[in-house]
Computed example of a mutant assay.
Amino acid sequence: MTDGTDIDEEGLGASDRRVRRTSKLAIVGAGAVGATMAYAALMRGAARTVALYDINTAKVEAEALDLGHGVQFMPMADVVGSDDIAVCADADVVMFTAGAKQRPGQTRIELAEATIGLVKKVLPELVAVAPDATYVMVTNPVDIVTYAALKISGLPPNQLFGSGTVLDSSRLRYLVAQHTGVAVQNVHAYIAGEHGDTELPLWSSATIGSVPLLDWQGLHGSGPLTREVRDRIAREVVESAYRIIEGKGATNYAIALAGSRIIEAVLKDERRILPISSLLDDYHGISDVCLSVPTLVGSFGAGDRLPIPMSVDELSGLHRSADALREVARSFGF
Results as ranks from 00 to 15, higher is better:
T2N: 12
D6T: 15
E9Y: 06
L12Y: 15
S15V: 08
R18M: 15
A26P: 00
G29W: 04
A32C: 08
A32K: 11
V33Q: 09
V33L: 09
A38D: 09
A38Y: 06
M43R: 11
T49C: 06
T49Y: 04
L52M: 01
D54N: 09
A58C: 03
G68T: 13
V71W: 05
F73W: 15
P75Q: 08
M76P: 05
D78Q: 14
D83Q: 10
I85F: 02
I85P: 01
V94R: 08
A98D: 06
A100Y: 07
G105Q: 11
L111A: 05
T115Y: 12
G117F: 02
L118S: 10
V119Q: 08
V119E: 07
K120M: 10
K120L: 09
V122S: 08
P124E: 13
V129M: 05
P131R: 07
A133H: 01
V136C: 06
D143T: 13
D143F: 09
D143P: 07
I144A: 03
T146W: 01
Y147M: 13
A149I: 05
A149G: 06
K151W: 00
K151D: 09
S153L: 13
P156V: 11
P157T: 10
N158W: 06
T165R: 01
D168N: 12
S170V: 01
Q178P: 03
V187I: 09
A192G: 07
A192T: 10
E194A: 03
H195P: 00
H195E: 07
P201N: 03
L202R: 04
T207Y: 03
I208P: 04
I208E: 07
P212T: 14
L214G: 08
D215R: 12
Q217C: 09
S222Y: 01
G223L: 07
P224T: 13
P224D: 11
R235N: 15
R235L: 12
V238C: 10
R243Q: 12
I244A: 11
G247H: 14
A250S: 15
R271F: 03
S277G: 15
S278C: 14
S278E: 10
S278I: 05
S278K: 13
D288K: 06
D288R: 08
V293C: 00
V293Y: 00
T295Q: 02
S299V: 02
G301L: 08
G301H: 07
G303H: 03
V312Q: 07
V312E: 13
D313Y: 06
R320C: 00
A322H: 02
A324S: 07
R326S: 14
S331A: 09
F334A: 08
F334G: 01
